[in-house]
């Protein structure tokens, strides 16, 4: 009977979903040490609040204690940025730690699963660990900095759609990063950090992209995270806040965001497929760097 159960054909989606769930579970087991009180304090309170407070004091120093839209702009950007880093890291480390530390890459890769689904699951698990930092930063903004994060003025359905699209776009970026990590050894584990720093500068995480040079503004519009943060600000802060794209309506922002995300998802999958093929051809898929 059990054998029959095992042999029962599974739809492609069911198999994909099962893999995501198992990989999510695995990622959670690997990453769940953040629930340790000290680690929770470090990663969910001290670091994100430290980062947000730097911006707040930069603002206070210039505005001499005044308040304005910029504070809300900083805060929402700082609050949601950990998802970007954690999501990309989860995916890249899904490969790198399996290859270098756990030595399981070849076994996972050769099992009859969608490896992409596996990486999505690992990435989602890591992204989940960013939730506490986001919530704490938002609460700090609402109650300490008096930023107008009021449920009554929020467009919650809009924010939820934007959030789901945002996570999807982070996965797409993660596939691009992981494709590069697959091709190099050694310092690959720091790659998400490097890509994250570049995106932090370009995507208007902490300032409106309108202050960037024109060429970087164009680049910013091609990256989904710029639209994501813009949409999250519009959804959470309500009307009248500072905008990266003041010329767009809320719906336009969401529509462009969805379109850019779709392009990146397709691109991410293509780039990953190419990197996978190349790694297999060169025999470097499970090559350890010895670092």
């Amino acid at each position: 009977m059990e054998a029959a159960d095992r042999l029962r054909p599974e739809s492609a989606f069911a198999s994909w979903w099962r893999t995501v769930r198992v990989a999510y579970w695995l990622g959670w087991q690997v990453e769940s040490n953040w629930t340790d009180p000290l680690l929770f304090f470090i990663y969910s309170i001290a670091r994100p609040l430290g980062g947000a407070l730097i911006l707040v004091f930069m603002y206070f120093v210039v505005s001499r204690g005044g308040r304005g839209d910029m504070l809300g702009f900083f805060l929402v950007g700082s609050a949601f940025w950990p998802f970007v880093i954690a999501g990309m890291m989860g995916m890249a480390w899904g490969i790198i730690s399996d290859r270098e530390h756990w030595k399981t890459l070849k076994y996972v890769y050769t099992s009859p699963i969608s490896y992409r689904a596996y990486l999505v699951g690992r990435s989602l698990a890591q992204a989940t660990s960013a939730t506490a930092a986001t919530a704490i930063t938002l609460l700090f903004g609402r109650w300490v900095l008096q930023i107008p994060l009021h449920l009554s003025s929020m467009d919650i359905p809009y924010a939820l759609v934007a959030f789901a699209l945002g996570i999807t776009s982070i996965m797409a970026l993660g596939f691009v990063v992981v494709s590069a990590a697959m091709s190099i050894s050694g310092e690959a584990w720091r790659m998400p950090e490097g890509v994250g720093a570049a995106l932090y500068l370009i995507c208007g995480a902490i300032f409106p992209v309108t202050v960037l040079p024109a060429v970087l503004q164009d680049l910013a519009q091609a990256i989904p995270l710029t639209w994501w943060l813009e949409a999250m600000r519009r959804g959470l802060l309500g009307a009248g806040g500072l905008r990266s794209f003041p010329w767009s309506s809320d719906l336009q922002v969401l529509a462009i965001f969805a379109a850019v995300t779709a392009v990146w998802v397709a691109g991410g999958v293509l780039v990953f497929s190419y990197a996978e093929q190349r790694a297999r051809a060169l025999g470097i898929l499970d090559r350890e760097s010895g670092y």
Binding site: M58, G194, A197, P208
Partner: peptide, 28 residues
């Protein structure tokens, strides 16, 4: 190992530039 050129110089520089733009956005 030349990776430090990127990770220890370019990365901090990127973060630094982001903060410069914050001040520029604030008109400091």
């Amino acid at each position: 190992d030349k990776s430090w050129l990127f990770y220890d110089t370019v990365l901090p520089l990127l973060g630094t530039i982001a903060f410069v733009y914050v001040y520029k956005a604030l008109g400091a």
